[in-house]
Simulated scan of single mutants.
Amino acid sequence: MKLSKEFYSILLALFAVFAVQAQEFNFTVQVNAQNVAQPDQSIFKTLETSMQEFLNNTKWTDQKYSDEEKINASLVFVVTSFDNDRFKGNFQLSASRPVFNSSYTSPIFNYKDNDIAFEYVEYAPFFYNENQFESNLISLLSYYVYTILGIDADTFELRGGQTFHEEAQNIVNLAQGTQGVAGWKPSDGLISRFRLNDDMLSETYKEYREVMYSYHLKGLDTFAKDPKAGKIVLKNYIKQLEELNNRRPNSLLQRTFFDAKADEIMSIYSSGPSIDIRDLKTTLQKLAPNQSSKWRNIKV
Rank of each mutant, 00 (worst) to 15 (best):
K2H: 12
K2D: 11
K2T: 11
F7D: 13
F7I: 14
F7L: 15
F7A: 14
L14Y: 07
L14I: 12
F15H: 13
A16R: 12
V17W: 10
F18E: 11
F18A: 06
A19M: 07
Q23L: 06
E24S: 11
E24N: 14
N26G: 05
F27Y: 11
Q30L: 08
K45W: 06
T46A: 09
E48C: 08
E48Q: 12
E53K: 09
F54R: 02
N56Q: 12
N57F: 10
T58L: 06
K59A: 15
Q63Y: 13
Q63H: 14
K64L: 13
D67M: 09
E69M: 13
I71K: 02
N72V: 07
A73Y: 03
V76T: 12
V76E: 05
T80A: 09
F82I: 08
F82T: 02
F87T: 04
F91G: 05
F91P: 06
Q92A: 12
S94R: 07
A95T: 03
A95Q: 00
S96P: 00
V99C: 03
N101I: 10
Y104Q: 08
T105V: 08
S106G: 06
S106Q: 13
K112D: 06
K112W: 01
D113T: 08
I116K: 02
Y120M: 07
V121F: 12
A124W: 02
A124E: 10
F127H: 08
Y128P: 02
Q132L: 15
Q132T: 12
I138W: 05
I138C: 02
L140N: 05
Y143L: 15
L149G: 01
G150K: 01
I151E: 03
A153F: 00
A153P: 01
D154N: 08
E157Y: 12
R159T: 09
R159E: 10
R159G: 01
T163H: 12
E167T: 14
A168P: 05
V172H: 04
L174Y: 05
Q176L: 03
G183Y: 03
P186R: 12
D188V: 01
D188Q: 06
G189A: 06
I191Q: 06
D198L: 06
E203C: 05
E203Y: 15
K206F: 10
E207D: 13
E207Q: 13
S214R: 06
Y215A: 01
G219Q: 03
L220Q: 00
A224I: 09
A224F: 11
P227A: 11
K228S: 09
V233L: 11
K235P: 04
Y237T: 04
I238R: 02
I238F: 03
I238W: 03
E242V: 15
N245G: 03
N246H: 07
R248L: 14
N250R: 14
L253S: 00
Q254F: 07
Q254K: 04
R255I: 00
K261V: 03
K261W: 01
D263Q: 11
E264M: 04
M266L: 13
I268C: 01
I268P: 01
Y269Q: 03
S274H: 11
K281L: 13
T283R: 05
T283Q: 13
L284A: 07
K286I: 10
L287K: 02
Q291H: 14
S292P: 03
W295S: 00
R296Y: 15
I298T: 02
V300I: 14
